[in-house]
Design a protein around this nucleic acid. Sequence first.
DNA 1: GTAGGGATAATCT
DNA 2: GATTATCCCTACG
Length: 193
Amino acid sequence: MTSILNQDFFESFDTLTLAQKLLGKELIHESTEGITSGIIVETEAYLNNDKACHSFGGKTLRNSPMFGPAGTSYVYQIYGIHHCFNIVSSKSGIGEAVLIRALEPASGIDLMQSRRQKVKLKDLCSGPGKLVQAMDILKNQNGNKLFNPPLYLKEGIEVGAIIETTRIGIGEGKDEHLPYRFYIKDNKFISKP
DNA sequence: GTAGGGATAATCT
DNA sequence: GATTATCCCTACG
């Protein structure tokens, strides 16, 4: 019995529940440069009946990992410059996922800072594009399973109160009011209060 | 301290 | 050709 989260964990909850369960877990990347890790402090859920979800309106080449089994990673590029990292949830063929929006840096902080050039600790992973850069999650992780190195999750800290609120960056008329964003109350490493 | 808008390219219609 | 699950720099008080 290790503390690495296995497929059972990801399959045991629906997407909204999983988004909350992931708070406090530790995301670890063993790269050739060294190990970096952080505690997940902010997530967003994307459901298949939700207009803001990439899988809404059918499967395409880009979103095909979302239709894979729970625990698959889904990495995509947004706004031409940034990447976002998601964990696929639900059963195969459904097309739901949890976006990881922010981490609290835990291990390999020096390495993360050198990748991101002189940023304060608080700003190192406080956003989807930032944490991907700090952790050096590349697009070649797209479609990988998160049960084994180099990229995996394990049990983290106990979380206190969880705040439930609306998601960020969703356009009007796309279910932007849905309370599908979750973060740890009073944590200083979230992207936005 | 906060607010606003430009950068930039893969993906889809 | 439009759109996008963002970041960062600049301007202003």
